[in-house]
Amino acid sequence: MSDSNTTNFTNPSTFILLGIPGLEAAHVWISIPFCIMYIIAILGNLTILFIVKTEPRLHQPMYYFLCMLAITDLVLSTSTLPKMLSIFWFNSREIKFSACLAQIFFVYCFSVIESGIFVAMAFDRYVAICHPLRHSTILTNSVVAKIGLAVLLRAVMLTLPYPFLVRQWPYCRTNIIPHTHCENIPVVKLACADISLSSSYGLFELLCGEGLDTFFIAMSYFLILRAIFNLPTKESRLKAFGTCGSHVCAILAFYVPGFFFSFTQRFGQNLALYFHALIGNVYLLVPPMLSPIIYGLRTKQIREKLRLLFTRKRT
């Protein structure tokens, strides 16, 4: 038999991204909602950064963490969307192997950073509700900076092994990735080797990252709810609930699609390839789009600043 139709290579110089397999004919139409969500995410998060920077009343730990979240969302969405749109609009499917490794690192690293920021925000809400008189002394600017640095270092340490594990495998089957961007599991599935180490490490990272973060957030809110129900009046309880509402909505927008995507990748072998690709993009686009909307609508200080900005423009 001729070997002309087989491919033998190790660590190919490029991969080919299919986009959304099975829906290639609809790529242009699919790109419209994704492009709109990306634009909303960019404008919304830049607006949050601008408002917090220009409004001295918002120079508080909660809004510093919100700025960290906005920066993370900007990087997370930008790490995949431009390449995805180039596939949909210009059929630019090639991606260099090194760029693919970088994309894997950025997607996983900033997902873990975002998860860590939600834990920091939960801690801020816990201190604000359970120890209100000590809030300014516990969460000083230096403490907030140290928390941010710790979140960044933990994310780098947890995700740095991903590109090294991907790079070590021999790829002798194909270099075609049935996705819009490089994801760990779709890429390592192309290797002609036992990839159980990569799969095991992916599960370990999920448990030590988002898994532990979910536990800490749950514990924080257990203590917060206990403190709220001990408040003397209904008005005070509703006010305390209101300060947590934005955070809870943003958490649900991030963790629900995130965990769903992680588990469908590992246990949804019978699902169509286009479903995996669509869920992967929803996971990376919806939270960055929704977070600024949630905080913009539910945070009084941000609403007031936005109203003031629009009023000035009209006059």
Rank of each mutant, 00 (worst) to 15 (best):
S13G: 09
F15T: 02
F15R: 03
L18D: 13
A26K: 10
I30V: 11
S31E: 03
A41Q: 02
G44T: 09
T47E: 14
L49I: 11
L58Y: 00
Q60C: 08
Y63A: 05
L69R: 01
D73F: 02
P82W: 02
M84L: 12
S86Y: 08
S92A: 15
S92F: 11
S98N: 14
A102D: 04
F110G: 04
S111I: 11
S111T: 15
G116I: 01
F118M: 13
A120M: 09
A122I: 02
D124M: 02
Y126P: 00
V127R: 05
V127L: 11
H131F: 12
L133V: 10
H135D: 08
I138G: 05
S142V: 13
L149M: 15
L149Y: 12
L149W: 11
A150P: 01
A150R: 10
L152I: 12
Y162M: 14
F164T: 09
F164Y: 13
Y171K: 03
Y171G: 00
I176F: 09
I177T: 05
I177A: 08
P178N: 13
C182P: 01
V187D: 00
C192Y: 03
S196G: 07
S196T: 10
Y201A: 10
Y201K: 07
G202E: 08
E205A: 15
L206H: 06
G209M: 02
E210W: 01
D213T: 00
F222M: 14
F222A: 13
L225S: 09
N230K: 15
K234C: 12
A240K: 01
V248F: 15
L252V: 14
Y255Q: 08
V256K: 05
V256C: 11
P257I: 01
Q269D: 14
F275M: 09
H276E: 03
I279V: 13
I279K: 01
L284F: 02
S291D: 06
P292V: 06
G296S: 12
G296L: 07
R298S: 15
R303W: 01
L306I: 10
R314I: 12
